[in-house]
Amino acid sequence: MLQFILRRLGLALLVAFTVSFISFSLLFLAGDPAAALAGETASGEDIEAIRRVYGFDRPMLVQYGDWLFAALRGDFGESYYFKLPVASLIADRLSVTMLLGVCGITFALLTAVPLGVLAAMRPNSIIDRIALFLSVAGQALPSFWFGLILIVLFAIQLRWLPVSGTATWAHFVMPTIVLGYYAMPAIMRLTRAGMLEVLSSDYIRTARAKGASELRVMFRHALRNAIIPVVSLAAVQMGFMLGGSIVVESIFALHGAGFLAWESISRNDLPTVQALILIFSMFYIVFTFLADVLNAWLDPRMRSS
């Protein structure tokens, strides 16, 4: 097991390194950063001056090396727009995004997994149909529309919850539901399909032949095997929630990292964008790594491969 973890960790570091290089160079491919920074009315001399001040005239690899070593020390440079260190700017916003992401994935898993198990226990029953309806609806409803409906219903009509902001836990209820409901259908369907497949396997029959109760068969024998693909999917969904919750953050005016990324891209705030891309991809790598470790714990066959 330890050997497996070390191997996966090495692989994750390699991926992280590659991703950092790609994210750094992609921004250069998008156009001349000095020209973009100088603005449309700037003269050629101004652009040259900016190029020198920001160091864009040096070879790209040198710039990358500088940026990477600074980043490893937690220094992502200064935001062009806010004139603040990028690190502290992001740290502020990231706590909101992480809280939202953790709540969102928790909500998604807590609704999707039990619903998927129930649906698989009684295929084509009324529970299965309700689960199917909820998942189709979740896939079809656009987040911005669903978010607005929730605001109209719970914040404006019923006045149970605040419309927007981040002041209390109540502010996070609706964003959590919108974000979680977006991830729920895929997790639910995968749980249902996995359970159906596992429940028809020979070892489930063996468990029943031992006199195990239906609950024990479902949760101890079946779910542990059926949940493995769900873990991988949830890890990707979690990464997506942290990096891609821009829509939800905009609707509920939660000033999180997703919202900051959108602002920074539209303002050509290069250091902030680079840092955010790096951090978001690190999330994916960390979650994928954790999912691999969790899966190896769940399924011993993965440890040896």
Partner: peptide, 12 residues
Amino acid sequence: IFQEPMTSLNPA
């Protein structure tokens, strides 16, 4: 005792 020893044990 079942016919299929390869699949009758829980892999987990």
